[in-house]
Simulated scan of single mutants.
Amino acid sequence: MKEILPFHLAIPVQDIEKSKNFYKEVLECSEGRSSSTWVDLNFFGHQLVLHKKENLDKKEENTTNLVDSKNVPIPHFGVVLTISIWKKLAENLKNKEVKFIIDPYIRFEGEAGEQATMFFLDPSGNAIEFKAFQDIANQLFAR
């Protein structure tokens, strides 16, 4: 596997303070630079920027794609974690009473690409997925 470098992702949020608190308190991201209309966060080693966008136009009907008999929200973003960190995060999110779109479970069990996954929304309706593999280097792009 080639060296993995941090990604940068900027997403719209309706309420910068509410969203910042969610990412800092629930997901335990640390804050970097910020202003009254945006904030940089350390999102599991990656740069996530929340940009305030008033009147955020979210569709009433979410777009989904059927994957492993589950309606996966599109678009979504997230990170790949080790299985031990994923399990701790899943337990932490349950303890913080995060409402899951797709509860933590093992997808493609016994098949190439078997993975742990979970989906939930941030306060502005941005869908987030965290996934994990027993062997990231060999399973991430398995066919």
Rank of each mutant, 00 (worst) to 15 (best):
A132P: 04
P123T: 15
K131L: 14
L66N: 08
L89N: 14
S36W: 07
G45P: 07
K2L: 10
K88D: 06
M118L: 15
K18Y: 02
G78F: 01
A90W: 08
P75I: 07
F119E: 04
F7C: 08
M1F: 14
A137K: 09
D122E: 05
D135Q: 15
Q14H: 11
A90I: 12
L89I: 14
Y105S: 15
S30Y: 15
S36N: 13
I16P: 02
E31D: 01
H8D: 07
D57G: 07
S36V: 12
F133K: 10
T64F: 12
N95H: 08
E114Q: 13
P123E: 14
G45M: 02
I83F: 11
L48E: 01
N42S: 10
K2G: 06
I128F: 03
Q115K: 11
N138G: 02
A112I: 12
L5A: 12
F43W: 07
A90F: 06
K53L: 14
G110C: 02
S30A: 01
P12Q: 04
G113Y: 06
I74A: 02
N92F: 15
I83L: 14
L27A: 06
L140D: 09
E28R: 07
Q134F: 10
N95G: 09
A90E: 04
N126F: 05
K96P: 08
K87P: 00
S84Q: 13
K94Y: 08
P104N: 04
G113V: 06
F120V: 05
E25N: 14
Q115T: 13
V67N: 06
S34H: 12
S69D: 02
F77P: 05
V80W: 01
F7P: 00
S124N: 03
F141E: 14
L140Q: 11
A10H: 02
E17S: 09
F100A: 01
E17K: 14
E114F: 00
E114N: 05
T82D: 15
F133M: 09
G113S: 05
E61G: 01
P123V: 15
N62H: 10
D135R: 12
L56I: 13
D15S: 03
N55A: 08
A142Q: 04
F77T: 08
S34K: 13
P123A: 15
E31K: 08
L41I: 09
D135S: 15
E25S: 10
D122G: 05
K94L: 07
K96R: 13
K131M: 15
R143T: 02
I11H: 02
K88G: 01
H46P: 00
R107K: 09
V79G: 09
F120Y: 02
K59T: 07
K88M: 07
E31H: 07
P12S: 08
L5E: 08
K24T: 14
E54G: 03
A90N: 05
S84V: 10
T82C: 07
N92Q: 09
E28N: 14
E3G: 05
K94E: 13
F100T: 05
P73C: 07
E60M: 05
V49Y: 00
A116W: 12
A127H: 09
L81N: 14
K96T: 11
C29A: 08
I83Y: 10
P12Y: 02
D57L: 14
M118H: 05
N92H: 15
I74Y: 10
E54T: 07
E31V: 12
E25F: 14
V26R: 09
A137W: 00
